[in-house]
Nucleic acid binder design. Structure first.
Lengths: 238, 238
DNA sequence: ACCCAGGCTCAGCCGTCGCTGAGCGTTTGC
DNA sequence: GCAAACGCTCAGCGACGGCTGAGCCTGGGT
C-alpha cells in the first residue's frame, strides 16, 4: 500500500487534471500524484473533464482514452479549442488500439494500462519539463558516485556506465528518488510494478539482487537491507 | 493493560471510528487510542460502522477486514460513496490473504493482526499526516545525543550510527516518545509487543539489556531503572 | 523459425531475530 | 543479617526473512 512520498509541504509542482471513469484507477492516480507533490483534480467522463479544465486551467491533463461518453482524443481536441496549449498524457490499453496513439500532439505522451505509478509520474514530469522548459525538475539523480540520468536513460556507477533492464531501471529510479528514506517491499511493489501485478514480494528481492550485482558491487555499498522493514538507498556516514 | 498516556487535556488530534467485531480488540484499541489523544467512537459491524460514519464524520476509520456482515472493503466503499474522502487503516490477518490488501485505495494503510499498539498509532498518524497535509510532525526524535529518525529508520548515539533489530527499534521508539515519563514493563509489553504475546515481562528486561549495550554504553546514561516501577529514558538533570 | 533478453517463480541455504531459562548480582523487606 | 524478590546478562533453540541460482515462459528481434 502506498505510504510516504516527497513533496509534502512544498507548494505544488503543477496542477493536474486526472480523467478516468474507473473510480479505482482515478483514486489511485489522484492520491499518488498528490503525494508526489502535484495539485490534483479529477473527472470521471469527458464532458466533466472539459468543463473542469475550463474552470481550473490545469497545467497538464492525464486522460484515459476509453471514456464512457467522449473519446479521449475528442476530449483533447476540445481542451485545445482556440489554439490553447494543453499537454496531455494519455492512458491507453495495451491491446491493438495503441495505433490510435499516433494522433498524439507534440509534447504529449502516453502510458499503457496497466501502468506503474513510477511510469506515470515520470511521463508527467517529462512532459512538464518539455512544455514549460521546467529545468527545475532535475532529470539527473545522484547518490555518491551513482548517477541516473532520466532523460538520457543512462546509469553509471563510479564513472562506469551500466546496462539495466527496464524493471531494474525503474526500481533504481524509485530508490534514488527516495534516497535516505526507507521503503518497504509493499511500497516498491505499489510504485514500480504495474497496479494489477498479482505476485508476491519475492520478485522485489530478486530485482534488488540484480541491481546490487550491477550497481552495488563496489564500495561503498549503497543499497542496505533493513530486516523486517525494507530497503534504503543511501551513502554511508551522512 | 494500558495506563496513562500523553494527550489528555489537549483537544483531540482527530476523530476516529474503530470497527471490529471482537470486543476485546475493539476495547483495546478504543482505550489506547483515546489515551493517545484521539477522539474515538466504535462500531462492531459493517452496517453500524456505515451508519455511524454518516452521523459523526470521523477523520479516519480503523477497520477490521473480517466482519460478520460486510467485508471490510465493502464498508470502505460505502464510506466513500459519493466520492467522499475517507482514509482507512485496515486490520488484516497475517495469513496469505495479505495480497488482497495490495492494490486497493491509496492513501490507506493496513496493519496485520496481531498488531502492537505502537504500530497502529504510528500508521494512523502517518495516514493523517498524509491525507491532511498535516505537515511534519517531526519524524526525528532526540534525547541528549541520542537521535532516532523514523523515516530513515536510523538511530545514532553520540554521532555514531547504531544497528538495531526491529524489536529493539520499536522499544527505543517507545522510550523516546515517552521520554521523561516512567513506563512500566506491563505498559511496554502492551505497546511494543503484539497483543497476543503470551510470555512474561522477562523479555522486556532482555531487550532493555540489548538496547543498553547498543545505545547506552556511554555517558551520560539515558535509560534508568526504577526498581519495582519501570524504566525512564531521560537526560540527566542539571 | 529461431534465439535471446527480460520477467517471474521456486526452493534451498544462511544469517539473524525473538524468546526462553538459568545463573548471578543487587536491592528490599523482615 | 538473611531471605526473597527483582533485575541483568548470557547462551541456546527454533523459526523466519532475505538472498540467490536455476529454470520456465513470453515476446520481440533477426
Amino acid at each position: 500500500m502506498a505510504e510516504q512520498e516527497p513533496g509534502a509541504g512544498r507548494s505544488p509542482e503543477a496542477r493536474l487534471l486526472v480523467v478516468d471513469d474507473e473510480p479505482n484507477i482515478r483514486e489511485l492516480l489522484s492520491a499518488s500524484l498528490r503525494y508526489s507533490g502535484f495539485e490534483v483534480i479529477a473527472a470521471s467522463d469527458g464532458h466533466e473533464a472539459v468543463a473542469l479544465a475550463e474552470r481550473v486551467r490545469p497545467d497538464l491533463v492525464v486522460l484515459d482514452v476509453m471514456l464512457p461518453d467522449l473519446d479521449g482524443f475528442a476530449v483533447a481536441k476540445r481542451l485545445r479549442a482556440g489554439g490553447r496549449r494543453m499537454p496531455v498524457v494519455f492512458l491507453t490499453a495495451r491491446d491493438g488500439t495503441d495505433d490510435k496513439v499516433h494522433g498524439l500532439g507534440v509534447g504529449d505522451d502516453y502510458v499503457t494500462k496497466p501502468f506503474s505509478l513510477e511510469e506515470v509520474v515520470a511521463r508527467i514530469r517529462a512532459v512538464l519539463r518539455r512544455t514549460r522548459g521546467d529545468l527545475e525538475l532535475p532529470s539527473r539523480l545522484q547518490v555518491a558516485d551513482l548517477v541516473l540520468d532520466e532523460e538520457a536513460h543512462h546509469v553509471e556507477r563510479a564513472g562506469q556506465p551500466v546496462r539495466l533492464s527496464p524493471t531494474e531501471f525503474k526500481l533504481l529510479h524509485y530508490f534514488m528518488s527516495n534516497a535516505g528514506r526507507v521503503v518497504s517491499k509493499a511500497q516498491i511493489l505499489d510504485h514500480v510494478w504495474n497496479y494489477d501485478f498479482g505476485g508476491d514480494a519475492g520478485v522485489v528481492e530478486s530485482y534488488v539482487s540484480y541491481l546490487r550485482r550491477k550497481i552495488d558491487n563496489v564500495e561503498p555499498r549503497l543499497i542496505h537491507t533493513l530486516r523486517g522493514v525494507g530497503y534504503v538507498l543511501r551513502a554511508p556516514r551522512h
